[in-house]
């Protein structure tokens, strides 16, 4: 693991949400943390190069942009896993896909313009892979969604 120091930690804790929307956002962050703009930029570039920062940008709730989302799970025998994952991953709306320890073992999130298009895509996946057991579990209530980690 690449080492990060306290200053990196302060920067990371600051920039995970409410990234400044001003002409010079890194100068604004520097002002808040008592660092120069150049130092903030240099550190953020390094943290991104190290892979600690995956990306900096906007994260959206699909529903607010007119899209729908769901969580799906396929029951896939080991010999079909590779092909199933390849077919599922080929859909741009599949953003996360994990192999998990369960008989329903392939868990993926699916974002699309409508419920109908998700149903159609899942039918298509079943047809292409021969896997008929695919759960479609859209959220009915959201109690929490957070992606800010205090380091």
């Amino acid at each position: 693991m690449s080492s990060i120091d306290d200053t990196d930690r302060r920067i990371l804790n600051r920039i995970q949400s409410d990234f400044p929307i001003t002409e010079s956002p890194f100068a604004a962050i520097g002002d808040e943390l008592g660092l120069s703009e150049n130092e903030v930029i240099a550190r953020v570039r390094r943290l991104r190069k190290n892979g600690i920062i995956r990306r900096i940008g906007g994260n959206f709730s699909p529903e607010k942009l007119g899209y729908v989302s769901t969580l799906c799970a396929g029951r896939v025998p080991p010999e079909k896993l590779e092909h199933f994952a390849e077919v599922v991953n080929s859909y741009p709306g599949v953003t996360h896909n994990y192999l998990r320890a369960n008989t329903f073992n392939v868990w993926f999130t699916f974002i699309a313009p409508s419920r109908e298009s998700i149903t159609e895509s899942l039918a298509e996946i079943s047809e292409k892979t021969g896997i008929s057991d695919i759960l479609n579990l859209p959220a009915t209530d959201v109690y929490k969604i957070r992606a800010h980690f205090n380091l």
């Binding site: 995970q16 949400s17 900096i56 906007g58 959206f60 942009l65």
Partner: peptide, 10 residues
């Protein structure tokens, strides 16, 4: 409309 705006970490 922006749920969270900032860095996503690994």
């Amino acid at each position: 409309l922006i749920r969270r705006y900032g860095a996503t970490l690994r």
